[in-house]
Amino acid sequence: MEKVTRLASEKEVVIFSKSSCCLCHSVKVLFQQLLVKPKVYEIDLDPEGREMEKALVSLGCSTPVPAVFIGGIFVGSTNQVMSLHLSGTLTQLIQPYKLA
């Protein structure tokens, strides 16, 4: 749990992902299109990936990946991120972190 919370707050936008997950890919592409370069942690490639997955679920992730953190705060998984995007709220949340 400590590793996940530490990693989630090390950069403005953090995505915990799995390299073979198509929903994770979609979320990563969305942030790229919104001109944000998130820090991505592929938990399936991390030796502590199983523990990280359990920690993400205990933080409230309905599915372990993708798990998106903005400003160190858990925003949600695919459904929550897409809902925020459609409502325009995601753009407001990431505004300070957009690339120039």
Rank of each mutant, 00 (worst) to 15 (best):
Y97S: 05
S19Q: 08
Q92F: 07
R6Y: 11
L30H: 08
S17V: 07
A100T: 12
G60S: 02
S19N: 10
T63C: 11
T91A: 09
C22W: 07
C61A: 13
I15C: 04
D46E: 11
S9K: 15
Y97Q: 03
I70F: 01
S26I: 00
M1A: 11
L30A: 01
V75R: 00
K54Y: 15
L90A: 04
F74W: 09
R50G: 11
P64S: 10
V40D: 10
E2A: 15
G60L: 00
T89R: 14
K18P: 06
V13P: 00
L90C: 09
Y97F: 06
G71V: 05
D44N: 14
L86Y: 12
P38L: 07
A55G: 01
L45N: 15
K54A: 15
V57E: 12
V75H: 00
S17R: 03
T91M: 06
F16N: 01
E2F: 14
D46F: 01
P96M: 04
V27S: 05
P66S: 05
V4M: 06
R6K: 15
L59F: 10
F74C: 03
I15T: 01
F69I: 06
S58R: 08
V27T: 10
S20Q: 08
I73C: 09
G76Q: 11
F31R: 00
C21N: 05
L93Q: 05
Q92K: 14
M52N: 03
L7D: 06
Q80D: 13
T91Y: 07
P64M: 09
Q95M: 13
C21W: 01
T78I: 11
V13T: 03
L23I: 09
C24K: 02
A100W: 13
E48H: 09
V29H: 14
S58K: 14
K39P: 07
F69E: 01
L34Y: 02
T91G: 07
I15E: 00
P47F: 15
E51V: 11
K11N: 13
K98H: 03
L99T: 08
E10T: 01
Q33F: 13
S87K: 12
L45P: 04
T89Q: 15
G49S: 03
R6P: 06
K98N: 01
G71M: 03
C61L: 12
C61W: 04
G71N: 05
T5V: 13
K98C: 11
V27K: 02
V14C: 04
F74T: 04
P47C: 15
K3Q: 09
K54R: 10
V36P: 04
M82Q: 08
H25N: 15
F69P: 00
M1S: 07
E53R: 06
L99E: 14
N79A: 13
C24Y: 02
S77A: 09
S26D: 07
Q32T: 05
K28N: 07
L59K: 02
T89P: 10
E12H: 12
S77Q: 05
K54T: 15
G71H: 04
L56Q: 08
K39E: 11
L90P: 00
I70A: 00
Y97T: 01
L7Q: 10
D46V: 06
D46T: 07
L35F: 13
S58H: 12
C21M: 02
K18R: 13
V29K: 11
L35E: 13
F16Q: 03
G49F: 08
V65I: 12
D44K: 07
V29M: 14
C24G: 02
T5P: 05
